[in-house]
Design a protein around this nucleic acid. Structure first.
Length: 588
RNA sequence: GGCCCCGUCGUCUAGCCUGGUCUAGGACACCUCCCUUUCACGGAGGUAACACGGGUUCGAAUCCCGUCGGGGUCACCA
């Protein structure tokens, strides 16, 4: 931990209007406990933007000693709602974000969820919404409408063609009660619309300040769909009230929706939570970071190469064709990764799980996410979850959209990795390998693994680096192939005694070495370099490295040889010499 | 297009509310040099921003107005 200016840090930690809860009145005697929530729609993966929203809600609840609720907004029947749809819960848990109330989740020592205000899946709360909705209809604050989607679409088109913005024309309100009843009895498809009161609406926002939407901006929006499900606007308002949510921190794309929610709250006689809208997270090019970005990049690569069939072994023709034909189709992760491999393109990390797979530490991601959209002030930018929970406040939330800088995240990850004790690093790499590189782990002895991991520590930017850059350990001695590149040629054929000469001279010395350990290798090879290369270890190390790894990059040479073992080292040198002899221009 | 929000180095930001201490600080990236057994790491230094134009003021990155630019939103998606 670096030095912290605690006095300065403490200055900005008070919310602008602590405890102010408009419309509270007599319903509650004392201030109810503060409660935040994260309410995503079901998904197998947590998007980084969502992760940040969840993080801020969680941290804010901790900071104000309130509680944090998780709710699943699954009111869209078109979106799947099976078990995989809440796969993102594990992503939240991985980041260390725990919810006090909501869907139950258990993993090892971690247990989240439960609570008395459930169920926490909106699809299981239909009766609750029906009650509140009927109340609104009874009071004349909402009404049935029978317009078909096509009719509405036509009206929207017409409005657009005339250059004016579309507002629902209240056709449903013109119907007589008898007609409405008759239509209903006939079973005509209908929705329920909220009768939006006239007049401007003022949104109080703790981050953006308050803004007033002119009268007529909010039209009679749908609150119950034809399938009987509530729309997002209705469900969110009802649930926030019933579940006792006092503070709503959500993405800025909801800012304008807040007007709808306020109107609904007034009509229903609800309390109004404190709102704070968070700027969205963007790609480096400024576009909104989206889960479709991966497909976009793959499509571009496919188009650039003029591919008409999927590369061998990536996916079925049918899957490929469907994906190419419709820009809205998303490849599943497995297919996307294989295609990216085949096309040699790098997929951007978008979901929390992508970052995990890439070898980022959860504590680093949390730190970085918090930094994109919030700042503790001053020069402080390295901190942990506990710090965020202690310091997070609304006045310091940034209003402007931030571009997600993966390079800086990588630098942070490197710093965290380097700051780790050796043992901790090896353990983390092992866990990462067990999960994402089982083949690699199976083919290495425990001793080899520990040597490799330790040797890779100081050059690792992610937990994944070691596995990606050391394929040579997995290659059987008889299968190793050498790159015929400029640096390889230079190391092997350049110099007075050439690299290949040195290798030949080294063979018997290494063959005679009884104690194949890092110190012994270092002693023998350094001595050799002293005697035959004027002490320039590089003249010996590089040819050796190439001989045993096939390329110019590997851990420190003594570590490299120790990991490989005596037998493999000697065999590889032998084969490298054979390869060189057989290659034109390489015979040293 | 209507409405709403935003605008400090390439990027993330500190400073802005409570004008002077800002010839604008930090971090990542970039450039140069050093270290070096490859790749990295590390060390030293450097380039680089208050979008623009008007006010207000003795004085503005900080307050006001306008312009331009960016984003969000206008669904029986959330």
């Amino acid at each position: 931990m670096e030095g912290i200016d605690w006095a300065a840090a403490a200055k900005g930690t008070t919310a602008r209007k602590p405890g102010v809860r408009p419309g509270l009145g007599a319903r509650v005697r004392s201030c109810p406990p503060m409660k935040t929530r994260f309410a995503p729609s079901p998904s197998g993966h947590l998007h980084v933007g969502g992760a940040r929203t969840a993080l801020f809600n969680f941290a804010y609840a901790r900071r104000l000693e309130g509680s944090f609720l998780l709710r699943i907004e699954d009111t869209d029947q078109k979106r799947s709602s099976d078990a995989a749809s809440i796969g993102f819960l594990k992503d939240l848990a991985w980041l260390g974000i725990r919810w006090d109330e909501g869907p139950e989740f258990a993993d090892g020592h971690v247990h989240c969820g439960g609570g008395k205000a459930g169920p926490y899946f909106q699809s299981e709360r239909l009766e609750v919404y029906a009650d509140e909705l009927n109340r609104l209809v009874r009071e004349g604050k909402a009404y049935h409408a029978f317009d078909t989607p096509d009719e509405l679409e036509a009206k929207r088109q017409a409005a657009r063609a005339e250059g004016r913005s579309y507002r629902y024309d209240r056709a449903g309100l013109m119907l007589s009660p008898d007609t409405v009843q008759r239509y209903l009895d006939e079973g005509r498809p209908s929705v329920v619309r909220f009768k939006a009161p006239e007049g401007p609406v003022t949104i109080a926002d703790e981050v953006l300040g308050s803004a007033t939407l002119p009268a007529g901006e909010v039209d009679d929006f749908v609150i119950r769909k034809a399938d009987g499900y509530p729309t997002y606007h209705f469900a969110v308002v009802v649930d926030d009230e019933l579940m006792g949510v006092t503070h709503v921190l959500r993405a800025q794309e909801h800012f304008n929706n807040t007007a709808k929610h306020i109107l609904l709250q007034d009509a229903l006689g609800y309390r109004r939570p404190v709102y704070a809208h968070l700027a969205i997270i963007c790609n480096p090019d400024g576009s909104k970071m989206s889960k479709r970005d991966k497909d976009r990049i793959l499509r571009a690569a496919v188009k650039e190469r003029g591919l008409e069939a999927p590369p061998h072994g990536t996916m079925d023709d049918a899957v490929f064709e469907a994906w190419v034909a419709d820009k809205n189709v998303q490849l599943d992760l497995e297919h996307a990764m294989r295609l990216a491999d085949a096309l040699d393109v790098q997929l951007p990390e978008i979901n929390v799980d992508d970052f995990r797979r890439s070898g980022y530490l959860p504590e680093v991601l949390v730190n970085f996410l918090a930094l994109n959209g919030w700042s503790p002030g001053g020069d402080r930018e390295k901190f942990d979850l506990a710090f965020i929970c202690r310091e997070f406040d609304l006045p310091r939330v940034i209003k402007t959209p931030a571009r997600f800088d993966r390079t800086k995240l990588l630098a942070f990850n490197l710093d965290a990795l380097q700051a780790m004790p050796r043992e901790a690093f090896v353990d983390r790499v092992r866990a990462h390998g067990d999960e994402f590189h089982p083949f690699f782990m199976e083919h290495l002895s425990e001793a080899q693994f520990e040597l490799l991991a330790a040797a890779s520590h100081e050059r690792s930017k992610t937990l994944d680096d070691m596995f990606r850059t050391n394929r040579w350990v997995l290659t059987p001695d008889e299968k190793l192939a050498w790159e015929d590149t400029k640096p390889v040629r230079k190391a092997l054929t350049g110099g007075g005694p050439t690299g290949l000469d040195q290798l030949r001279a080294l063979q018997p010395i290494l063959a005679d070495l009884a104690d194949w350990t890092v110190p012994e290798l270092e002693r023998v090879i350094t001595e050799f370099a002293q005697a035959h290369a004027g002490g320039q270890l590089g003249r010996i190390a590089q040819p050796l490295r190439i001989a045993v790894s096939g390329g110019t990059v590997s851990p420190a040479i003594f570590d490299t040889l120790a990991i490989l073992g005596k037998k493999s080292t000697l065999r590889r040198i032998e084969r490298c010499l054979e390869w060189a002899a057989a290659s034109a221009g390489l015979a040293g």
